[in-house]
């Protein structure tokens, strides 16, 4: 079995390393530095770490001010509170003038588990994707997390990175480099395209394996750069396979499913099935149980692929 890494843990390590390399990097947290993993940076660079207490709106505003002062702020808290509680601060104080603030939010999706629906962000990608000037990223493993954080330091402008609580298998090599606007083909196939973000990339890969056992060849995409989306890859894949499935630990509206729908509708309409929460909030429970409950498992993706294929074949 491949090594397992949690994207939030890898973020914490990456931030610490980059903090050593670049003295302009500062970090902010809203009383969750243990959960978001900014605690390592805080310990190493106490003068460059600002805990704002339980005050997410103030944290994002303070980050905007630090960016205006020439710093490269990384602001972290749970995805729900960063994007929900402080959405208007992100809009007005950060995105509106394209300030150089990096928001790295942990605990995206229902795999947060026991804390329940109040703490499971299932709308953060929609809330960030809708904002002009915002880049939206969802890493699928440790190397990709590290590459994205390193890239974000160099990029001038606001970036939202969603990290997860659960460890995922490692996909990419250690020297993986992130490119803005690029999606990745992780598995070649011709019958159907399975595209995911974060944990769901792994479930797409497993689904492709299950489909192969039934003679269906699935192309698997990691669309970790949700905005700007690699629309050319989406269109090319749709043209090649003629059937599409998106999978995300998020509402089926507003996130990856919507982004892909928009591209397909305009450029290459093919049957599309979206895996995600259907107009419903999360709930308490173990992550594995919740992923099953909300239909986010490899089997569910396989089922969606078969439906898309049936539509493609006119059945």
């Amino acid at each position: 079995m491949a090594a397992q890494e949690s994207t939030r843990v890898e973020y914490g390590k990456a931030l610490l390393q980059l903090g050593k390399e670049n003295p302009d990097i500062v970090a902010l947290d809203a009383d969750l530095s243990g959960s978001t993993q900014t605690k390592h940076f805080a310990k190493a660079f106490p003068q460059r770490f600002f805990n704002l207490g339980v005050a997410e709106q103030d944290m994002l505003g303070t980050a905007a001010g630090l960016a205006l002062g020439g710093k490269i702020p990384f602001a972290s808290t749970f995805a729900m509170f960063a994007t929900g509680r402080a959405w208007e601060q992100i809009r007005q104080s950060i995105a509106y003038t394209k300030l150089n603030v990096k928001i790295v939010a942990s605990h995206g999706g229902v795999s947060v588990g026991e804390d329940g629906g109040s703490h499971q962000a299932v709308e953060d990608l929609a809330l960030m994707r809708i904002l002009p000037n915002m880049v939206v990223l969802v890493p699928a493993d440790g190397p990709e997390t590290r590459a994205m954080v390193r890239w974000a330091v160099e990029y001038q402008g606001p970036v939202y990175i969603r990290t997860g609580r659960m460890p995922f298998p490692v996909i990419y090599d250690e020297d993986h480099r992130f490119e803005l606007g690029r999606g990745y083909i992780l598995r070649e196939g011709e019958d159907v395209t399975l595209a995911g973000v974060g944990l769901m990339v792994h479930h797409c890969l497993e689904a492709a394996h299950l489909l192969a056992q039934e003679g269906v060849s699935a192309r698997v995409l990691n669309l970790s750069c949700l905005k700007p989306l690699d629309w050319q890859l989406v269109v090319d894949s749709a043209r090649l396979t003629g059937a599409f499935v998106t999978a995300e630990e998020h509402l089926a509206t507003g996130g990856l499913g919507s982004a892909v729908s928009e591209v397909l509708a305009e450029h290459c309409p093919v049957p599309l099935q979206r895996i995600g929460l259907r107009d419903i909030f999360g709930t308490s429970g173990k992550a594995e149980i919740l992923l099953k409950h909300y239909g986010l498992m490899p089997d569910d993706i396989k089922g969606a692929a078969i439906k898309a294929l049936a539509r493609k074949n006119g059945r």
């Binding site: 500062v26 709106q57 505003g61 905007a64 001010g65 205006l68 002062g69 020439g70 702020p73």
Partner: peptide
Amino acid sequence: QGLSIANGMALASRL
């Protein structure tokens, strides 16, 4: 929102 931003600018100025 301005006071939070001013705080961030003041922190940056100190750094």
